[in-house]
């Protein structure tokens, strides 16, 4: 018996291990193999096909155009003028701020493209700021995150109004007018048109925290919806402050 073990023991054990492992894979339906394959394939994983993204973008653009058309019809029926022209100038950011205290950036379009001081600037995500100075080929934009910026805003859901002031970062402080504002975390904040610098209805940010105990009025922390540090291009809209 001992001689048989010495001769066949190793192969017997190996057979056991192999069959046991294979049975385990079969029993778990190859779960471990699937996971291992996932991690192995990562270096070769493909980006989503750009043509699919283009198709999705085109669909969204058509939907937006349709909604805008309906919005224009409704405004005509109700006799409410639209605050923003549909023409916008696309510009890329060529320079950030020159010192540490101002939140600004410089765009590569200027007077030659009919941009004027006071024009409103938006980027993917929402309102970004307004043009403060133009040269023939550039314009300098002061951002709403600047500590000196004040934007009249309204909470979309409850129409609660307040003033948004910048903190020099992606979060701004919303100071309400009433002592008991109707606002929740997650509410969207839009421009109200109350401050004459910005037209109404532009997306500004999302409420991230509410503090009802601050004086003189309750405050909320709003995360600005346009990622200001990553803005590469933006749209400049003509805005005449005299209009409502």
């Amino acid at each position: 018996m001992g001689r048989w073990w010495l001769q066949h023991g190793v192969s017997l054990i190996l057979t056991g291990v192999v069959l046991g492992g294979a049975w385990g894979i079969r029993a778990t339906q190859g779960a471990w193999l699937a996971e291992a394959f996932y991690w192995l394939h990562l270096p070769w994983s493909q980006q989503p096909d750009p043509s699919l993204l283009a198709a999705a973008t085109q669909e969204l653009q058509v939907q937006v155009q349709e909604l805008q058309r309906q919005n224009q019809e409704l405004r005509k029926l109700l006799n409410v003028p639209s605050p923003l022209g549909s023409q916008a100038v696309v510009a890329t950011v060529i320079a950030r701020q020159a010192d540490h205290w101002w939140q600004q950036f410089t765009l590569n379009r200027g007077q030659k493209d009919n941009i004027m001081p006071g024009d409103v600037v938006a980027a993917p995500g929402g309102l970004v700021g307004r043009v403060e100075m133009v040269t023939p080929n550039t314009s300098r934009v002061i951002l709403i995150s600047d500590p000196s910026s004040r934007v009249g805003v309204v909470v979309s859901r409850t129409r609660e109004m307040g003033i948004l002031r910048g903190q020099g970062s992606q979060e701004a402080i919303l100071e309400f007018f009433s002592k008991d504002p109707q606002v929740q975390v997650g509410d969207a904040v839009l421009t109200s048109g109350l401050s004459s610098f910005y037209p109404a209805g532009m997306m500004v940010g999302i409420v991230r925290a509410v503090n009802l105990n601050t004086s003189p009025a309750p405050q909320a922390i709003v995360e600005l919806s346009a990622p200001l540090g990553m803005v590469e291009w933006s749209l400049v809209y003509r805005y005449d402050q005299g209009r409502t």
Binding site: W102, I142, D146, P147, S148, S149, R150, R165, S195, F197
Partner: peptide, 8 residues
């Protein structure tokens, strides 16, 4: 002054 108001 380039901004809207003075910071706190």
């Amino acid at each position: 002054f380039s901004g809207d108001a003075l910071p706190s």
